[in-house]
Design a protein around this nucleic acid. Structure first.
Lengths: 161, 161
DNA sequence: TGCGCTTGGTTGGGTCATGCAACTATTACC
DNA sequence: GGTAATAGTTGCATGACCCAACCAAGCGCA
């Protein structure tokens, strides 16, 4: 099956589209992390962002969503709570659980962070045609979804085609 | 300037293409890392891969290439050396430096790792038209280059348009 | 009602990756 | 030779993780 267009010689020196893609991804992430200028750590941003997106939700659901261990998320949530960017409300349906939601302060942090980052990306992307940008986002999302579908059959998610 | 197509309401809830893109990237990287099934750690893979790509090279050059601190790379190189995947040859021109190169064993590890990963990606991408895959790679690379150009003016790199 | 099982979260402990700063070994330049 | 730059290494601290053990609130059920 050659849909992946591998172009590696048999004796090592592996080089194929998907691999190069991966390396590019890593490089990018590193660059972005490096340019970290925000009021909160990248990992916290990530969590906060996700809480913001999917409304009040349980810690365990959040963990599933961001694909981190519950314990990890638990600590991040605590940190965000202490700094006032996130708050927990008792789940009326289950006293064990707590519903997380972003506070005003948290929203502000997110907003600022994104504004900053957007500035960076804007510059880098200013020469990009809108269409390309949308295409990239679309394809990347599809890839992520497909990958997720494959790696976690438990979460039957469908990519848009 | 709206090339980035921000669609966020003024009061928080930031949502724009670039941000979503970033989050998708993080999710993907995590997925891939999670599926880590290889004989060596991802970070070591990354280093090994780069040594393999750009032939015998110095540690400092390698560090620049992978964008990690020299000390970090130093440790990774040591680890790879100990496990026999990498070897250092004295640089004839400079006794301080060493030239790193991948051993046969290292090539094998890379090969296996990539084969494994390729299998995963192949499945995920089997339904993808080749064209989309190429487009994705192309756009992603462009993005990485543009970003790099902006974040490190020291490295005047040009993206292909 | 009270004993066990399940489930939502927290905590303890350990690992890996990484950067910064201090240090050693070589060169390079006068 | 003496001093400054350079290639790497090592000590130390931090952040982000995960796994396993644990606590606490429901849930069944006799």
């Amino acid at each position: 099956m050659q849909a992946v267009s591998a172009t590696q010689d048999p004796q090592g020196t592996p080089r194929d589209t998907s691999e190069a893609l991966l390396v590019t991804l890593m490089r990018m992430l590193r660059l972005i992390k490096r340019a970290h200028d925000a009021p909160i750590e990248p990992a916290l941003q990530y969590v906060l962002y996700n809480v913001n997106c999917t409304g009040p939700l349980r810690l365990s659901d959040l963990a599933a969503q961001v694909q981190l261990d519950i314990s990890t998320v638990s600590r991040h949530v605590r940190a965000l709570e202490v700094s006032g960017h996130l708050e927990r409300a008792a789940d009326p349906a289950d006293k064990r659980a707590a519903l997380l939601s972003v506070t005003e302060s948290g929203r502000k942090v997110l907003h600022d962070t994104f504004a900053r980052r957007r500035a960076v990306l804007s510059t880098a992307l200013s020469a990009w045609p809108e269409a390309d940008l949308n295409t990239l986002e679309h394809l990347l999302n599809r890839l992520a979804d497909d990958l997720e579908t494959e790696l976690k059959p438990s979460a039957p998610k469908r990519s848009d085609s």
